[in-house]
Design a binder for these strands. Sequence first.
DNA 1: AGGACACTTCACCATTTGGTGAAGTATTGC
DNA 2: GCAATACTTCACCAAATGGTGAAGTGTCCT
Lengths: 105, 105
Amino acid sequence: MLTTTFGALADPTRLAIVGRLSRGAATMGELAEPHRITPPAMTKHVRVLVDAGLVHRRRVGRTVVCTLRPEAISEVQQWLGDLTTYWNSTVDRLEELLREDGDGH
Amino acid sequence: MLTTTFGALADPTRLAIVGRLSRGAATMGELAEPHRITPPAMTKHVRVLVDAGLVHRRRVGRTVVCTLRPEAISEVQQWLGDLTTYWNSTVDRLEELLREDGDGH
DNA sequence: AGGACACTTCACCATTTGGTGAAGTATTGC
DNA sequence: GCAATACTTCACCAAATGGTGAAGTGTCCT
């Protein structure tokens, strides 16, 4: 569900995790390091991201390596595309927006 | 804050409201109609969207007309753009993703 | 003025969320 | 085997969230 994806991104720690993972894979410890957060909290955050389909988790030795799953992101891109298509499709809409920006309250 | 925007979109009712508003302005009553929800609940949902900068609310007679504010949406578009730029910038990254998709656990 | 209409504000409630410390599990290295 | 490492699971807590009914506010209509 798209709302699940947005929910996963609605937290500063998790948004930072996604940002970090966009630069490459990282272990739980590496992800936790810049956030002054306990291991259980990090486990929870990553689980939310995994449940939303944004992150892939796999065991490597005694560490757990996380990677980003671009598929989930492209779902958001799709939604954004559909959304903007609607209001760009009519000039009336644009005129309406301009008019409404004009008046004070 | 971007997390506030995502938080506002992390609810099915509010996501539907945004979808509805992308087709044009609507009053609170019109927004509530398809959702079997009480007026106080709708007021709360719209406030969350207004606080996130996604929606503009103005009084027209005894109704309240809501419109979408594209600026907040474009902030999300910006973030998505930055994110995908990172992992598309290196071929190594793509290879890494393919390798990791390959193995089972 | 007074009633109807379209919300909003005000408690209030149940559930979810983000956090913790303590205990448990899997893996590495001596 | 045993200690250390790297998490995870397990209660548990405080705060936020999404919902409600009841009462309040502003606007239109007669």
